[in-house]
Structures are given as structure tokens and as C-alpha cells.
Design a protein around this nucleic acid. Structure first.
Lengths: 201, 201
DNA sequence: ATTCTTTGTTGACGGTGTCAACATATCGGT
DNA sequence: ACCGATATGTTGACACCGTCAACAAAGAAT
């Protein structure tokens, strides 16, 4: 009793809503998430969610935030597994980033797109995205000190790298690249080209 | 009479719908486009559009197609203005691409995103996007023959380049890059890094 | 002039997010 | 053990949305 996590009638709706919504997004895209359908799936009425989230938008923001957490964990795992700060580690990070996006297309779109989420200030999401980005900047700074990559604004370098992987991920996700070709090869070519442009000669 | 363009009651609704919808997208995003609001703006009823487009989706597809046309024109202008096939021309093309996206954020999102447009086969859009991409591939092939860039699959090179500019455009558009910094500088750094990775040493 | 076809309007339907009013379950203090 | 307060869930209603069927009108064709 007083389980702290489970409470009241349903037992931690709120987190259940986030998980279920994430599942619906994975199955049918963000557009398939409906307050009514969501309630049905959880055996709860259509308005129940409003005791936990002010808005449908707020719920989706929470789902997106959970996505940032998962992405962060995967990148951290790569960081831990790869040999000490090397160009190869950068390559692996980029590849893992794109893989996450391709494996969770609708979720990734929700995280970074402005279509499904309202424009308002979303400090929660901004913070999550920023944390990831700042880590990337630090990695570039470390590589600069080690003399492996060109000395220039590391923030700019991070933006460029992020743009490349985000762009590839987006084009794959949105079906712009008819990706029956091997995706891994494309990822490899992208990271290699990018790092060739950044590393010292 | 029989003006061929203007006809019947309104006078070429259809193209008027496309233009007005494009205007609404520019002003308030794709979500602000509503059959009712669209009709009001054109002094026409909510269902009038259905004599010209089978669907709201079909209308948006037409708007997106018009966007591809405008983008194509701008890139063609750069192509015509820049000195004969040079690395600098590549740089200018990339920069112009990103500028178009930043100047028409919602329209660009509509063109390349999968959020507002339904997943169905959209041969019209695919053809428009493909035309642009194939031109890019040809440019890379020409540069390879001239020995200015590395000899490898030009299609892959084109994908990488496209990913970089598309990624940068998307991050800027969706407010992921707090772009109070000079955007032009970021564009320059991106294209320079990318080309450094592609060109011969 | 009459008919046909194209174009536009109106009313209606089901679906959506959201809110106010209501109902109930749990908690905290006594 | 009770009881009020609070947190949680339900129901009915509203406005808005895309879309369709039935209707009206305007131009084209004969």
C-alpha cells in the first residue's frame, strides 16, 4: 500500500498514458493518437488524461521527452563501449543516432519536428535536446585538444555534424531516400565524408 | 472569352485555392489551413474546393508541388549565375537551398515532411523531388570527371550532400538551433566542411 | 432555346479536443 | 474509526473539423 508509484483508481495512469501513447505512435504514427482511443486502450474514459496532462500537447511533449531519454541512453552506451575518445567513436555515435531514428521513425519525428507539437516554449524538451547537444560539443572540444580535428568553433562543428546525421535520418524516415539500398552503407559514407571534412589532414 | 484560365463562376478557383492555401501556410503553418477558412478567404463555401481536389490532402500535395517548382527555379538561377561548374557553385547551391527553407519554413516542411501529408503514393511529389535530386547527381558526376571531387558513387555523394543541407535547414526551421547566431555563417561552415570531405586533396 | 456539364451551396454526419458538472476513491487528521 | 478534503475518473455538451449527398445555378454545346 501507499506504493507511491501505483496510486488511486487506476494505478499510475500518467506514466501509463505516456507508455501507451508511445506504443500507438510506433504503431500508427502520431496522428493515430487520440484521446478517445488512448482511453479505450487503458480502460479509461476519454477525459481521464486531463487529470494528468493539461493538454494533448502536454502529453505528447512527455512522450517526446521519454524518447530523448532513450536516445541518450543508447548514445551513452556507445560512448562507454567505444575505445577512448577516437574518430571511430565519433563515427559510431553518428551511426547509432541514425539507427535510433530509423528504428523509431514516428517517435523521432515527434521529438524534433514542429508539426505535431505546438510552437509554445517547451522548456522540458529544449533542455533534453540541449543536454544531448552539449555532450556532443564536449566531445568535439576533446578531439580538438587531442589535435585530431580542425581547430575551429566546436559549437559550429557540432551543429554541422548534427545537421548531417539529422538530415540523413529525416530523409530516410520520411521516405525521401528510397532506402531499399543498404542503409548502413549510406550511414557509413555520411559519417566518413563528414569526418573527412572535419579532421586534420 | 473562353479565357481558358478564368472560367465559370469564380474564375479559376483551383489555382486560387493553391495560392491562398500557400499563403495561409506561410502565415500560420499547415495546421491553420482549414477547408472552411480557405473558403471564407476566397468568398466561397467550405465544400467548393472539392470540385477541384478530391481531398484536402490532394490540395496540400498541389501546394507542395508548387513549392518544388519555386525551389527548382531558385536553384536553376544559382546554377545559371555561378561561374562554370566549380566547387564554388556547389557551395552556392547548398546555401541557396537552405535559404529557401528558412524563408519558407512551413512550406518546406510540407514538401519534405510526412506529418501533414498522407503516406499514400504521391507520384507527383516524388517526381518533383526526384527531378531536383537527379540534377544534383549530374552535377556531382561532372565534378568527378573534372577531377575536383573524390571518385565514388556520385549518388551516394549526392545523398550525403542533400542530408547535410536538409538537416541544417530542418534544425533551423524547427527551432532546434537557436539561430540568433548568424545563419549565413553556419551555412558557410556546413557547406565548407561538407565539400572538404568530398573534394580531392 | 433546350439540354448537358461544370461549378458552387447547404445540411448533415461522424470524429476530434476540451471543458464543466458530477461521481467516487483515497488520504490526512482527529 | 470516522470525516472532510483532495485527487482521480466519468458523462454530457460544445465548437470545430473533413467530407458527402442533395440541390442550385451558370456556362457550354447543340
Amino acid at each position: 500500500m501507499t506504493n507511491r508509484a501505483k496510486a488511486y483508481h487506476h494505478g499510475d495512469l500518467g506514466t501509463a498514458l505516456i507508455q501507451e501513447a508511445a506504443g500507438m505512435i510506433a504503431e500508427g504514427g502520431a496522428a493515430s493518437v487520440t484521446m478517445r482511443a488512448l482511453g479505450d486502450r487503458l480502460g479509461v474514459s476519454r477525459a481521464a488524461a486531463y487529470r494528468h496532462f493539461s493538454d494533448k500537447n502536454a502529453l505528447l511533449v512527455a512522450v517526446a521527452a521519454a524518447g530523448f531519454e532513450r536516445l541518450g541512453e543508447r548514445l551513452a552506451a556507445v560512448n562507454a563501449a567505444a575505445p577512448r575518445a577516437s574518430i571511430d567513436r565519433l563515427r559510431r555515435l553518428g551511426a547509432e543516432y541514425v539507427r535510433f531514428a530509423v528504428e523509431n521513425p514516428a517517435h523521432y519525428r515527434l521529438m524534433y519536428g514542429r508539426e505535431a507539437l505546438v510552437r509554445e516554449e517547451l522548456p522540458e524538451l529544449r533542455a533534453a535536446a540541449n543536454t544531448l547537444f552539449e555532450q556532443l560539443v564536449e566531445i568535439f572540444e576533446a578531439h580538438q585538444k587531442a589535435g585530431r580535428i580542425k581547430r575551429q568553433d566546436p559549437r559550429g562543428q557540432a551543429y554541422v555534424a548534427w545537421s548531417a546525421v539529422h538530415g540523413l535520418a529525416s530523409l530516410l524516415i520520411d521516405g525521401q531516400i528510397t532506402a531499399t539500398d543498404d542503409v548502413e552503407g549510406l550511414i557509413r559514407q555520411t559519417t566518413r565524408t563528414l569526418l573527412d571534412g572535419i579532421r586534420t589532414r
